[in-house]
Computed example of a mutant assay.
Amino acid sequence: MKKILLTGGDGFFCTRFAKKYNTSYKILSTDVPELDITDETKVMEVFKAFNPDYVIHAAAIASTDFCNNNPEVAYSVNVTGALNVAKACKEVSAKMVFISTEQVFNGTLESGPYTEDDTPNPDTMYGKNKLEAEKLLKEILDEIWILRFTWLFGLPERNCGMSPNILWNTISIALEGQRTKVTCNEYRGLTYVHELIDHFSKVFNIPYGTYHVGSHNNLSRYDVSCLILKESGLEERVDELIERDTEKYRDHQRDVRLCTDKIRRYGIEFSDTKDAIKKCIEEFKLKI
């Protein structure tokens, strides 16, 4: 049985990944208590002890505000930590999957969707960290997949990590009953986390390189929130719960959509965001 080591193991993606594949692979899921990725010596010790075939490096500080306000801490985790993991992968001959982000394009003036050949231009510290790590990791490892994720969404599950996402944020607005502004000037891919995880083992069989991963989407963030409420049976409460925010990103529309045609050519395909939201709501029996 092949062995997979996860970093960021307590997070939104990795907890669900471990549950899905715990009988298909021998999985060591690590987070800060088990493995501080900024400690190069400890990283090497853990990797040598487990001797993984694959490493999925998902550990990161992803909060945009925190990274902007604490650049040195962010760099130590998002860049130096990633390099420590890559060096350990090289030492034990493990293949690495590096989870990157659509945010490498969030300062790009041209509209998306962006391909892997488009030039990234991040304007946040998190996006800059990820882009720098991508470059440096490729200097250490040949056997590496760099996956730039779109924004994942899903619902709370027992014994699984949770993070803010478009679906749960919108449902929370309905639960709290407080009218909230939602921007109509932001466009991004929004991917159902379980659809991504169901495909994930296929990644190990595609050529090494950089891939954009997730759903295509042509709806604004406001339109997606409206869709979620309607599909949840709350269509009559849309105007009560959300308000169109025309000011945020007014001067420059935020568009970080990714073109995922490259990875689709290898049989890793995703529903568009509209269908993926409907699928998630149906699977969790969320409709009122």
Rank of each mutant, 00 (worst) to 15 (best):
A88V: 06
L35T: 10
A58S: 12
K26M: 10
C67T: 02
V46M: 11
I140E: 08
T80E: 11
V73Y: 10
T38M: 02
K48S: 12
K128L: 06
G112M: 08
N129C: 13
T41Q: 15
V92R: 12
G8R: 08
V43Q: 11
S24H: 13
D123P: 01
M44R: 15
A82T: 13
G11I: 00
P120S: 08
S29Y: 03
A88D: 00
K87I: 02
K138E: 05
F50S: 07
K135R: 15
N121L: 11
N22H: 12
N129L: 05
G112K: 12
A86F: 11
P33R: 15
D123L: 11
L109M: 13
D53M: 11
D118Y: 14
T108I: 14
C89L: 04
I4M: 09
A60I: 06
Y25L: 06
P52C: 01
T119Y: 12
Y114E: 07
S100V: 09
V92T: 13
L131Y: 13
A133C: 14
P33Y: 03
K130T: 01
F12D: 00
G112I: 11
D39N: 14
Y75E: 08
Y54V: 12
L131M: 03
G81I: 07
L5T: 06
L28F: 13
C89W: 08
L35V: 00
A59P: 02
